[in-house]
Simulated scan of single mutants.
Amino acid sequence: MDPALLLGLVLAFGALLAMISMEGASFTALLLPAPMVLVFGGTIAVGIASGTMRDALLAVKALPRAFRGERNTGQTVIEAIVGYAETARAEGLLALERSVADEQDPFLKQALQSIADGTDAEELRLVMEDEIASAAARNRTAARFYTTLGGFAPTVGIIGTVVSLTHVLEKLDEPSTLGPLIAAAFVATLWGLLSANFIWLPIGGRLRRLGELELERMTLMMEGMLAVQAGSPPHFVGERLSALASDRRPPRRRRAAAEEPALDS
């Protein structure tokens, strides 16, 4: 588990509490139900309205992952694939079928089963590339949903402040109540800015980064399993995957660069 999101949120809200304490204010003065209901409820509502129900459901399903983090590191993937290369080298590709039941990653499990079934290398590459493209699209959708919430939240907060100030104007004949009413009116704007920058945008950014890491991991799996299918020596598989793991270019650019003909000297 990667605690970066939890740690960041705790530090951010801790800094807010420290400021409130140093200013001599009361945090309970910010916990007003009415503006919080409008800001959080209204923001989520317009976020759903800006897309489709499928987008919203994907975002909800992706939320636990934002707190949990990436499951496997690149080194873990490389070690697993090198192990499969050793098995295939010693016992043949059919021996990989014994590892299908023990493999936890669905993407790698599908590749193992396809290799054991004798799937053609080009067909296997196409299937795995389609899976990678689908996963990338899901990750983009989830990250975009929370980033969109971060864009809506400040404006929804301003709407709440305008509504509250309208109520303040109705009380001009009671000067003693104007101060607390005006202070309460700006709580909606505060929660709009706070939720956008302390909650929605960090979650969106976190999911976008996790999507990039998942794309790199799936690409490593694809290239590694294709090398295993081709009968490459285990040490070569490990060296190639280590090189790919250190290359931060997108997979399409890496393949394009590899396929470019060498220039004549």
Rank of each mutant, 00 (worst) to 15 (best):
A56T: 15
D173L: 01
G204T: 07
A59C: 11
W200K: 07
M221C: 09
T147E: 13
S114Q: 15
E97M: 00
L215T: 14
G69E: 03
S176K: 13
L207C: 04
E174M: 12
R125N: 12
A188L: 05
L57G: 06
T177N: 13
Y84Q: 01
Q229T: 01
S134G: 12
D120I: 10
A49N: 09
L30E: 06
I78G: 04
E122V: 10
Y146H: 11
I182P: 06
G238E: 00
G118K: 06
E212D: 13
A227M: 14
V60P: 03
I203N: 03
T177G: 14
S246M: 13
L9Q: 14
D247F: 04
L124Y: 09
S164P: 03
E70R: 14
G211Y: 02
M218R: 14
D117N: 12
M36L: 15
G157N: 03
A184T: 10
T87A: 06
T166V: 15
G179L: 12
A183R: 07
Q75C: 02
V37C: 06
G211E: 03
R240P: 08
L32N: 11
R54D: 11
L63N: 08
Y146C: 02
S164G: 14
E91Y: 13
P64K: 01
L194H: 07
G118C: 10
E97D: 14
R249E: 09
F198D: 03
T148I: 08
L57P: 08
L5G: 12
V77F: 05
L244Y: 02
L169A: 08
G205S: 11
E79V: 03
V39A: 00
V37F: 10
A116W: 04
R240E: 09
S246Y: 01
E91M: 14
L5Y: 12
A196V: 11
Y84W: 14
R254V: 05
E170R: 13
P261I: 09
T43Y: 01
W191Q: 07
A111F: 01
G160L: 01
P202I: 13
E216L: 11
T76H: 15
S21G: 13
A262K: 15
E259P: 08
I81E: 02
F107V: 00
P106I: 05
V46N: 02
A227E: 05
G24M: 03
L190A: 14
